[in-house]
Design a protein around this nucleic acid. Structure first.
Length: 611
RNA sequence: GGGGACGUAGUUCAGCUGGUUAGAACGCUGCCCUGUCACGGCAGAGGUCGCGGGUUCGAGCCCCGUCGUCCCCGCCA
């Protein structure tokens, strides 16, 4: 038999009462976290968003309330009224924030009952994500998830407040729009009124925010939902949220300052410290030192130790001369056993192919012929890493190009990227040993980095053409334009594009945009796009460019990824209230679904199902 | 599109070389218990071994297919 609430009101939350409140009569409401039945004495832990408070039901104090508690079960919703009582010295629970007190209930109402839940919100997360997602409301009751949602809320709020204080307007842009050229697949929305026509959900508000700059709104931001119909990963959802901003007349550094400002605010509000400004690094440096365009600075860079080798050593070790020999430093006690070293050498063969070899430094050290070389490698690596000296506990992994190596590996970029991948694999495998990924509660936990000067063009092997590396509204370096490199040397053209990287995760990406119609046309032509084609795809935007477009630029940061890192989570699903599975399915509402023929007919759609 | 891991009670898992009636813990139900806080004690219920097919005297276990969840590559800022 359920009770009616009547006019009762919650006086306090389940997380706020302390010893100083003893003696007050209060009413708490919440979910039964656990029940401990001692017969004539029953303890109920009642939970809400704010915490857990112990309610005591004593048959002597109130037989009615005690009888109610006998019926109560986990996840029942109850209202308890009674006096706050100090617990005896032996029964204080130091593990609970409210552990010094308890409520001696004189009234207990069961406001609602609950089926036996498939898993208990009182316990840690269960393994089975399918069940967690299907019963998301139960999963979200878990304190850990409530904390993640809280972090997300606080970060969003801090970003809003900071950007507003800097003069940014929050402006909404349409969800139902036309395809913008971000390069991903669109989610489409059929039009009922226009048979055969479709809206597209925005992959980002890119062109709208540029038009807002053309509109003279000067500084724009939005916590914007974006949609991309691509395959998912732990850090990729089909709909995700970006902190999107754009400003008029900026230098690159102006944008960096704004981002550093709101990130500092966002981290502060969640109790974390970071130091600004963030270091900057060009794309070329990042590739050379880390073999990737999103370096994780928590571990030392790779170093080229080829100078440590003599010509004789190169030839006797069957190493191709004139190519980088890359040393990867893994700090800490990460000595590999013989078995591990062999397995690792095999792994390199498998992942990098026959062009890269694993140079076993331990074996070199022991061989009379190469002991001196091993020491020189150590020294060179230490020097290049800026380490004080050769630290015996730092293990070096040395990768060398094999003699007679094939064409792709002669490209330094290829070598750097392979080595960078191995560096990350090793970092992950030995994370317990080096401990660099463990949070220490200092500003060093969060290694931010600006990566600048991305190449403007990217070679597309498939189509054998140059394609844009960012998006086609990114401005090239003015110097490269002046020097006429667009035509003469496309590979050397740098984009005024930049990424912000946090602990090896790409957090965001932005650029200074093209504001001149003639430059924009030049870019389209360089990409092999006819004027007609350009007008067809971006006509409205090209037209807008002709009406006094100011220089402008901006950036977009992945809010979900940011919160994921702040929450220490390993998947976006932990920081999104209602996420989708790897197959883009919502297991709670069961979406997507087929729709009725009538609905399809109205939308002028006939599905073509593959058999 | 490709590769990998997993799928046994509500949950987490065990299940030998293919062999009788598929087990444990937690949870759940009933009874007992006035100081617990992962309460405790006694008793009990609970299984389409993801699904379909095959091999076999016999399949949770082997084979083929399929579905689902997760991770990675491709793809995607």
């Amino acid at each position: 038999m359920l009770d009616f609430l009547g006019t009762r009101q919650r006086t306090h939350t389940c997380g706020e009462l302390r010893a100083a409140d003893a003696g007050t009569t209060v009413t708490l409401m919440g979910w039964v976290n656990r029940r401990r039945d001692h017969g004539n004495l029953i303890f109920l832990d009642v939970r809400d968003r704010y915490g857990i408070t112990q309610i005591v039901l004593d048959r002597e104090l109130s037989p009615e309330a005690h009888a109610k508690a006998e019926q109560a079960r986990p996840e029942y919703v109850v209202a308890a009224t009674g006096q706050i009582r100090l617990r005896g010295a032996e029964s204080v629970n130091p593990k609970m924030a409210t552990g010094e007190i308890e409520i001696a209930a004189t009234e207990l109402l069961i406001l609602n009952d609950s089926k036996v839940p498939p898993f208990s919100p009182a316990e840690d997360a269960i393994q089975n994500e399918e069940v967690r997602l299907r019963y998301r409301y139960l999963d979200l009751r878990r304190p850990e998830m409530q904390r993640n949602i809280e972090v997300r809320h606080k970060v969003t709020l801090a970003v809003r407040e900071y950007l507003a204080s800097q003069g940014f307007y929050e402006i909404e842009t349409p969800f139902m729009t036309r395809s913008t050229p971000e390069g991903a697949r669109d989610y489409l929305v059929p039009s009922r009124v226009h048979p055969g026509h479709f809206y597209a959900l925005p992959q980002s508000p890119q062109l709208f925010k540029q038009i807002l700059m053309i509109s003279g709104l000067d500084k724009y931001f939005q916590i914007a939902r974006c949609f991309r119909d691509e395959d998912l990963r732990a850090d990729r959802q089909p709909e995700f949220t970006q902190i999107d901003l754009e400003m008029t007349f900026p230098q690159q550094e102006d944008i960096f300052r704004v981002v550093e400002g709101f990130l500092k605010a966002a981290f502060e509000v969640t109790g974390e410290k970071i130091s600004t400004p963030f270091p900057r690094m060009t794309y070329d440096e990042a590739i050379r030192l880390y073999g990737i365009d999103k370096p994780d600075l928590r571990l030392p860079p790779m170093t080229d130790v080829r100078d440590a080798f003599s010509a004789e050593e190169l030839s006797s070790l069957k190493i191709e001369a004139g190519l980088p020999i890359i040393a990867i430093v893994i700090p800490g006690q990460v000595e590999m056993s013989n078995t591990q070293r062999k397995a690792f050498a095999q792994e390199i063969d498998r992942t990098a192919g026959p062009d890269l070899a694993f140079l076993d430094l331990r074996r070199l050290e022991k061989s009379p012929q190469y002991a001196a070389l091993a020491q020189r490698i150590d020294a060179a690596a230490a020097r290049n890493c800026g380490l004080a000296g050769v630290e015996p506990e730092n293990r070096l992994i040395v990768l060398s190009p094999r003699l007679g190596t094939t064409a792709p590996a002669r490209d330094h970029l290829w070598l750097y990227k392979k080595a960078g991948q191995l560096r990350l694999d090793l970092a992950k495998r030995f994370q317990d040993e080096h401990g660099a990924f463990t949070k220490k509660g200092t500003a060093g936990d969060y290694k931010f980095l600006w990566v600048t000067d991305f190449p403007f063009f990217e070679w597309d092997e498939e189509t054998r053409t140059w394609t844009f590396a960012h998006h086609p509204f990114t401005s090239p370096h003015e110097d490269d334009l002046k020097a006429g490199r667009m035509e003469s040397d496309p590979e050397a053209v740098r984009a005024l594009a930049y990424d912000i990287v946090l602990n090896g995760t790409e957090l965001g990406s932005g650029s200074i945009r093209i504001h001149r119609q003639d430059v924009q046309q030049q870019i389209f032509r360089a990409l092999g796009m006819s004027d007609e084609e350009a007008r067809d795809r971006f006509g409205f935007f090209l037209e807008a460019l002709q009406y006094g477009t100011p220089p402008h630029g901006g950036i977009a940061l992945g809010l979900d990824r940011l919160v994921m890192i702040l929450a220490g989570a390993s998947s976006l699903r932990e920081v999104i209230a209602f996420p989708k599975t790897a197959k883009a399915i919502d297991l709670m509402v069961n979406a997507p679904t087929p729709v009725s023929d009538a609905q399809l007919k109205e939308l002028h759609i006939r599905p073509v199902l593959r058999s």
